[in-house]
Design a protein around this nucleic acid. Structure first.
Length: 821
DNA sequence: AGCACGCCGACT
DNA sequence: GTCGGCGTGCTC
């Protein structure tokens, strides 16, 4: 008989088991097993049961016959992974140097993770036989008594709480060996389908009166139940609440089959009854043109398109038209947005247009809601998925189009393993599933625009705004002049003047600063002592509320000193400006103005975010002060002034793309001004008013910015001309770390020499990371800038494994990092 | 990771 | 003589 094998990926994160394992498919499972399914297999010398994903089914394998074990069981009938997803995962493993299981895990909702529980129960038979035996220790006696009283099996975690002994596991194992107790391993998923119970008359009799005849005379409560249900068969929980019945009332009714309790799977819908409406609108010439072009292209195989459209040029309407076109071809679409919680308008518009067939996936949903949305997609009930980064993995099987809005946003790059970039995943997915990719942005990333120019993407420009609203006027203020003129305030005279003007005319203003807290550093004027975090290599930020010094990396906090801890001087200096300081200064300057602040500190509570936005939208405040989070997507029609307190914060970052980031940020912040009927104004304060990124932002001139920046990238051998690989080493022991990462470096050089001549000059020596210590771990890093990433990846995977085994340091590899900080 | 196997020191 | 400490190495 033909033997059949399955190749599986073990669901356990470890680099040394990162390969497919072969298992025999037992006869009873041959009919039902499918690629992509989750199975339980015995693994390792102890044959511990573990879940795994089937990635292939074959009729031969070259593993010694005696070694092969049988698959134990199938977890779900429906495969969790499609074949295309498996293909994608394999590609991700190679490209991002992650493990198979890391790549697989980003594709399935976390609620489906399997929880392994150990259930302990007493062997009552043995206990009877040895009743009079004295237990060797008091632990045994107490423990077995505890189990005896429990009657059912008990979860190990619960026992741990009751018996907080160090070697509990060992004790339990010993008792199991003596056969006093049983241990059963139980697998279950964290999240399950939500069920709701309903109660109704059983339908036993046609005539309602017949029901009442069956109950005991004087059973007043039972009668009430029957009469109620005659008119309102309903939700069980609500019913119990309303009629205040207990189970003792219902029990006889159930026994006589007069009533029935049924359960139904409920869809956890976070957008129920929102009633969004969004009819299609007439299009501008530019919009029409792009859509027509897309329709022509879309008949061909996989096409990639980049739309560069100024803010307000109506990209969303184009997306919706493309999705509609796909629907007519019976194809599905994914629409990605940078951070869905910040762009509720997008959800409104898509759901308003397409209704029930839309699924939403983002981090704001509960695990249960996420699972239900995923299930809906999996069952083929969704033709459109709107979501953040991870929605790129949505399990649609008739995918025709992927749209990535605001494609330049860094949120599209994952900061956890696998450190994927959504655009790359999208490109790969389009290749695998033969669908189209559309990228859109007002400030495309250098990489994407370069590809557009080089003809790798079809490039389209939207140069006009839909309502022909003029762009806001941007003014650059040289803060050095302010100092010369004796203005030491963080507010320039022009900004003050404009704020006054807006207050008087009841128009709203936004002040932007990319730094939270009050002061960014605290030091002593006398001896120069600087308050630093004991666990991280950063200065502590002073926070006004609580008068605390806080580390923004690890959260360490302490009270701000009144005197210098070193020289006892009282001359403590607060350096640098954060949003809190801006707030106090603005409050002082404009005592009558109502001010709101929006940053991580004021939005920590659930719903606080939306509350601040709504409050400002309803014009309950005159000035909104905030960080990054007010820069994106928000629409306040009455805002006519945006002030950037210091543009240099992002400009001075020692990162290869800091100019690009600044240009994007300035363009975005500026876009918050003048969205209504009134003309908008933007004031950008800086110490570098001649910097090209600021000048081009001022002129709303993407093209010239691109030309300047791309020239620098070319000269400096940065992306898109070379690929960057960033290898970060971290360890608590600094000495070992330095030594080991140098060893790693040498090893890499040696391997590289063998592969290709001159390749080693792409490797830069390891240096301390810009933040050289985080959470008590020292950090060094090493950069590779190369045109041969594949060659390097192959070598890296080898040495990486080797070093993970033999050294204590942690190694993290980031392919195409968006930041090397 | 988790588990077995193996090779050494401190106990009945 | 044995229990149990952790170092090593493998997992279809």
């Amino acid at each position: 008989m033909e033997k059949i094998y399955a190749q599986v990926i073990i669901n356990q994160f470890n680099h040394s088991i990162d390969k497919p394992f072969n298992y025999r498919i037992p006869v009873c499972l041959i009919k039902s097993i499918q690629i992509g399914q989750r199975v339980i297999v015995p693994f390792g010398m102890g044959n511990q049961k573990i879940d795994a994903f089937v990635i292939n089914i074959t009729n031969f394998c070259n593993i010694t016959e005696g070694k092969i074990k049988d698959i134990e069981q199938i977890v779900e009938e429906t495969p969790l992974l499609t074949k295309n997803q498996i293909k994608l995962a394999c590609w991700m493993r190679n490209y991002y140097l992650c493990t198979y299981i890391e790549a697989i895990q980003v594709m399935i909702p976390s609620g489906l993770k399997i929880e392994k529980r150990e259930m302990i129960s007493l062997n009552r038979e043995i206990l009877d036989k040895t009743k009079k035996q004295k237990w060797s220790s008091s632990f045994d006696r107490e423990f077995l008594q505890y189990l005896f009283h429990k009657k059912t099996e008990v979860e190990l975690e619960e026992i741990k709480k009751r018996f907080p002994v160090k070697d509990l596991k060992k004790q339990i194992k010993r008792l199991q060996q003596k056969e006093y107790i049983f241990i059963r391993k139980d697998f279950r998923t964290k999240i399950k389908d939500k069920e709701e119970k309903y109660i109704a008359l059983s339908g036993k009799y046609k005539d309602k009166g017949e029901y009442l005849k069956e109950i005991r005379k004087g059973a007043y409560k039972q009668k009430q139940v029957l009469e109620y249900l005659e008119h309102f068969p309903c939700n069980y929980r609500e019913f119990r609440k309303k009629l205040k019945v207990t189970s003792s009332t219902l029990k006889p009714l159930l026994e006589k089959n007069l009533i029935k309790i049924t359960s139904k799977i409920i869809f956890r819908n976070p957008y129920e009854n929102k009633g969004f409406k969004n009819p299609s609108v007439s299009l501008t010439k530019e919009q029409r043109f792009i859509i027509d072009e897309f329709r022509k292209l879309a008949n061909d195989s996989s096409q990639k398109i980049l739309i560069h459209g100024v803010t307000g040029s109506g990209k969303t309407e184009i997306y919706l038209n493309m999705i509609e076109f796909m629907l007519n071809k019976k194809k599905q679409s994914i629409l990605l947005v940078p951070e869905i919680s910040l762009t509720p308008q997008m959800i409104e518009r898509v759901m308003g247009r397409f209704g029930e067939q839309v699924s939403i996936l983002h981090s704001g949903l509960s695990n249960g809601e996420k699972y239900d949305q995923w299930k809906k997609i999996k069952q083929g009930k969704s033709n459109i998925v709107v979501g953040a980064r991870s929605a790129i993995f949505a399990p649609l099987d008739k995918l025709g189009l992927i749209i990535i809005d605001e494609e330049h946003e860094i949120t599209y790059k994952s900061s956890n393993n696998p450190r994927y970039h959504t655009i790359q995943i999208a490109e790969k997915r389009c290749e695998i599933e033969n669908c189209h990719l559309v990228l859109g942005s007002a400030t495309p990333s250098m990489e994407s625009y370069y590809k557009g120019k080089a003809g790798k993407y079809h490039l389209y420009e939207l140069k006009h705004r839909v309502k022909n609203i003029p762009m806001p006027k941007i003014e650059l203020i040289d803060m050095r002049n302010e100092l010369k003129e004796g203005n030491y305030s963080i507010l320039s005279n022009s900004l003050k003047k404009e704020l006054y003007f807006n207050l008087e005319n009841k128009q709203q203003s936004i002040l932007f600063l990319n730094r939270r807290g009050y002061s960014t550093a605290v030091s002593c004027r006398q001896c120069g002592y600087l308050e630093k975090c004991p666990h991280c290599d950063v200065s502590l930020t002073y926070h006004f509320n609580g008068k605390k010094l806080i580390c923004h990396y690890c959260g360490y906090s302490k009270l701000a000193p009144k005197i210098c801890p070193v020289c006892k001087s009282k001359k403590i200096k607060y350096l640098g400006t954060g949003t809190q300081k801006v707030q106090t200064i603005v409050e002082k300057e404009f005592p009558n103005a109502k001010i709101l602040r929006m940053d991580v500190d004021t939005t920590r509570k659930k719903g606080a975010h939306q509350r601040i936005i709504n409050s400002f939208k309803n014009q309950e405040a005159d000035i909104l002060i905030g960080t990054q989070m007010i820069a994106k997507g928000l629409d306040f029609p009455n805002v006519t002034l945006v002030g950037v307190i210091i543009a240099d914060t992002s400009l001075n970052l020692p990162d290869y793309n800091s100019a690009e980031r600044t240009f994007q940020l300035m363009t975005q912040v500026a876009g918050r001004s003048g969205r209504g009927d009134l003309l908008g104004k933007v004031i950008v304060q800086t110490y570098q008013p001649n910097h090209y990124s600021l000048i081009h932002a001022k002129n709303h001139d993407y093209t010239h910015f691109y030309n300047d920046e791309i020239a620098i990238r070319k000269e400096m051998l940065y992306p898109p001309f070379k690929e960057i690989i960033n290898i970060v080493f971290s360890s608590e022991n600094e000495k070992d770390l330095i030594q080991q990462c140098y060893e790693f470096y040498m090893e890499l050089i040696n391997h590289t020499k063998k592969v290709k001549k001159d390749l080693q000059k792409d490797i830069y020596k390891p240096v301390p990371s810009p933040v050289s210590k985080i959470k008590s771990k020292y950090r060094w890093h090493m950069i590779i800038k190369t045109s041969y990433p594949n060659e390097f990846k192959e070598i890296l995977r080898k040495i990486y494994h080797e070093y993970l085994n033999k050294s204590q340091m942690h190694i993290s590899i980031d392919i195409n990092p968006t930041s090397i900080l």
